[in-house]
Amino acid sequence: MPLLMGAALLVGWARTAFEPIQFAFYKEPHGTWYIDLPDYPGPKGNLAMVAGADDMLDFLAKGKNRVVVAMSEQPFTGALALNRVKVGEPGGGAYYKPENHAIQSVWLCDVTLFALGKFPEHIYFRAVE
Rank of each mutant, 00 (worst) to 15 (best):
T77L: 09
V106R: 01
P120K: 03
L82S: 03
I35L: 11
T112M: 14
F18Y: 05
A115I: 10
L108E: 09
I35Y: 01
D39Q: 11
L80S: 03
G91T: 07
Y96V: 04
V85T: 13
Y95G: 00
S72Y: 06
V68A: 11
V50E: 13
I21K: 04
K62I: 06
M49I: 06
V85S: 08
K97C: 06
Q104C: 00
A79W: 05
H122V: 13
A24P: 00
C109G: 14
G52Y: 09
G12R: 15
T16V: 01
G6Y: 05
A24G: 14
H101P: 00
G88M: 07
F59Y: 15
A14N: 10
L82D: 03
G88N: 11
P20S: 03
L9T: 04
R126Q: 12
A7E: 14
S72R: 05
A102M: 14
L80R: 07
A24C: 11
G6E: 09
G92H: 06
R66D: 11
K64R: 15
D54Q: 07
R15Y: 09
L10C: 02
A79V: 05
V87A: 14
A24K: 10
K86V: 10
D110E: 15
F119V: 08
A53F: 03
M1G: 10
C109W: 05
D54V: 06
L82P: 00
L116H: 02
A53M: 10
L82C: 01
V128E: 10
H122C: 09
E121L: 13
V106Q: 07
L57R: 01
K64M: 12
G42P: 00
Q74A: 14
L113F: 03
H122M: 12
H122G: 00
F125L: 15
F114A: 07
H101W: 08
V128R: 01
A53E: 08
K97Y: 03
V128I: 15
A61M: 10
L82T: 01
A48W: 01
F119K: 07
R66W: 11
V11Y: 13
P29H: 01
L57C: 09
K44L: 12
V87H: 03
C109R: 11
M49G: 08
G88H: 08
P98D: 08
P43R: 13
V68C: 04
A81C: 12
P20Y: 07
M56D: 04
P29Q: 04
G91M: 08
G91Y: 09
R15D: 12
P38F: 11
V69F: 05
F23C: 14
L82F: 07
K44I: 09
A53H: 02
E121S: 12
I21T: 06
P98H: 03
K62F: 07
H122R: 15
I123T: 04
V128K: 04
E73H: 00
M71E: 09
D58I: 06
A48M: 12
I123S: 01
G78S: 11
L10K: 08
G45V: 09
L113G: 02
D54F: 04
P2T: 05
P20M: 07
P38E: 12
Y124G: 01
F114R: 08
G52L: 09
A79F: 07
L3N: 10
P75S: 10
G6D: 10
A53G: 00
I21V: 13
A94L: 14
A61T: 07
D36W: 02
G88C: 09
M5T: 11
D39N: 02
R15K: 13
D36M: 02
G6F: 04
V111H: 07
A102R: 12
G52P: 04
